[in-house]
Structures are given as structure tokens and as C-alpha cells.
């Protein structure tokens, strides 16, 4: 079914929207959730919650890309679930690795509760990812949006794992510079 048709079903509050979403994007969202949680049962629950959240969000929202709209919901739900799990229960080792990598982009870690700050950070990351050369941006997205493993990225793009790691390292350095340049390490921000 076309995405526009599925979105229409959501707008009409027709439960077929959920069936169509599951049929078309179920495995896609499940993969994202499993990449974060590394647990099938937890991932399944997050995917089911994705349909519910999409149901609640549409309307008023009308996503341009239903696929990525659902992907974002799954990603956020999965990450929230991962964070809520105790360190012992967490099985998303890759998630911890990705977070460690992202920590390299930070001068230091301090809790920020400002919505404005996070909104600006999101805008910065959106612009940064958009500004990257195509291949670099894709590797960056696979790792930090989809949480693909390094080996998976290497397989996808025909790279060696070492190449992938070097690309990611280079991109993180650029992101760190960008964040610094835009004042995200400035206490006043």
C-alpha cells in the first residue's frame, strides 16, 4: 500500500493503518529496535508501541516520509527502553559502544534540561548531517541513527571495518568542531 494511503488511514482513524504499517514497515522497525535493544521481545514491544504512537501523532502530523517517521518513533522508544533498563539487564552492547563514540564529540558531559538547547542541538545535527559528503553522511547515519554495527556498515557499503571506523572517527572529529564552533560547549548556552 502506498504511504500516502496509509497516512490517510491514520487520519481517518482507520485501524487498517496499523495493519498496513506492520505489514510494510514491521520488519524495518524491528531491525532498528533490535539494533538498540538486542532483545527480540523488547524490540517487539517497542515496534507495537510505535504503531500506537503513530496513531496518536497522526493527525495532527502528516509525515512526508512515513518510513522515517516510524523509524524515529521506534528509535526513540527503543532508546528510552534501553535507558530505563538496569545496567545488568541491558543487552544492547552496541548501543553502549555508540554512546561511548558519541561521547568523543563532547568536551565534557553535563546534564542539560533546556528544551531550547536540545532544539538547537537537533538543528545543528540536522545541518551537520546534511552538510556531509554523501558517502560520509550515509555511514554516519547508519551508525548513529540506525545503530548498525561497524561490520554491518562495512558489509553494506563494501568497506573494510577499519575503513568504517576511520570514517566515523573523522566525522566525529568534525562534529566536535562543529558543536564547539556553534557554542554548544559554552556554559552560557
Amino acid at each position: 500500500m502506498e504511504d500516502s494511503r496509509i497516512v490517510e488511514l491514520y487520519w481517518k482513524k482507520n485501524s487498517d493503518a496499523i495493519l498496513a504499517s506492520e505489514e510494510k514497515y514491521g520488519s524495518y522497525c524491528r531491525l532498528i529496535a533490535e539494533n538498540i535493544l538486542h532483545n527480540r521481545e523488547d524490540a517487539e514491544e517497542c515496534v507495537n508501541d510505535t504503531w500506537l504512537q503513530a496513531w496518536n501523532a497522526i493527525p495532527p502530523q502528516r509525515p512526508q516520509s512515513l518510513k522515517h517517521f516510524l523509524a524515529r518513533i521506534t528509535r526513540n522508544l527503543s532508546f528510552n527502553r534501553w535507558k530505563s533498563q538496569s545496567a545488568v539487564k541491558r543487552s544492547g552492547h552496541e548501543t553502549a559502544l555508540v554512546l561511548d563514540e558519541l561521547a568523543e564529540c563532547l568536551e565534557s558531559e553535563t546534564d542539560v534540561e533546556s528544551e531550547v538547547f536540545l532544539r538547537e542541538l537537533r538543528a545543528c545535527i540536522r545541518d551537520f548531517a546534511r552538510s556531509l559528503p554523501e558517502r560520509e553522511g550515509s555511514v554516519f547515519a547508519r551508525r548513529y541513527f540506525f545503530l548498525d554495527s561497524v561490520s554491518s556498515i562495512a558489509e553494506r557499503y563494501g568497506m573494510t571495518e577499519n575503513n568504517v571506523m576511520v570514517v566515523l572517527s573523522h566525522t566525529r572529529k568534525k562534529l566536535k568542531k562543529r558543536l564547539s564552533k556553534e557554542g554548544f560547549y559554552d556554559d552560557a548556552k
Partner: peptide, 8 residues
Amino acid sequence: MTRNDLFS
């Protein structure tokens, strides 16, 4: 800013 913020 924390690594979780950046990830989110």
C-alpha cells in the same frame, strides 16, 4: 550536554 542527549 550528555552522550544520551547527542544520541537522542
